[in-house]
Amino acid sequence: MATATFRIWRGTAEKGEFRDYTAEVGEGMVVLDAVHQIQATQAPDLACRWNCKAGKCGSCSAEVNGKPRLMCMTRVSDLPLDVPVIVEPMQAFPPVKDLVTDVSWNYEVKKRIAPFSPRKPDAPDGTWRMAQEDADRVQEFRKCIECFLCQDVCHVLRDHHKHAAFIGPRFLVHVAQLEMHPLDTGDRVAALKNDNGIGYCNITKCCTKVCPEHITITDNAIIPLKERVVDDHYDPVLKLIRLVLRRRG
């Protein structure tokens, strides 16, 4: 059977190094398979996160040959194998061990965003009516598997470490999902500007490119949110109208 070299980051928060492992490569194999093979046969203490192995849970995020990817959805046959395949942890988060990083910041950020608050039910039985086309718009955002690859690639977090001031693309998608939710009555526009730091995003679109769920993060989520922020700022009347419309639902 053919083999390939996997150059995997091994280490802790304090120190680490790349180490080379040889793995057998079979048909259809993905990078996560190689990591598992190495774990089972050569390095049982090699740390990585995974759950579904089908691109549905967003656990196995890492950087493969320098690109933020889900390891379970990266086919080995799509990579050049004459050189080592480099596998390292996401760079925008503190390292824990090997391929595992500390992503707890993301969970804290989400808690700060005002939760969903629906309008009064439309029907006496306590249910709502919603057209599919209105659902479509937020369903795109709700596909997010919280892999945090977009957070990893965003230069505001990765290079400028603005974690305290900027919530990152994942949570702008989350806010967009709430703001455009057909039933929601909350208003998160002031928070977007002040607490969430939407102004830091300069629309480089790197986040959209890495999203494994193909969410059009910049065009569909961030830009419309930026427009709302601008409208609110420069046009208080528009803001008032929108608030009234929303209350009426």
Binding site: P118, G126, T127, W128, M130, Q132, A135, V138, H181
Partner: peptide, 19 residues
């Protein structure tokens, strides 16, 4: 299931807008 909708779930819709 209806309670999930009250908590923000967005299910696919029937032509008359129900789940």
């Amino acid at each position: 299931v209806n309670e999930l909708e009250a908590w923000g779930a967005v299910f696919d819709r029937t032509p008359d807008g129900r789940i």
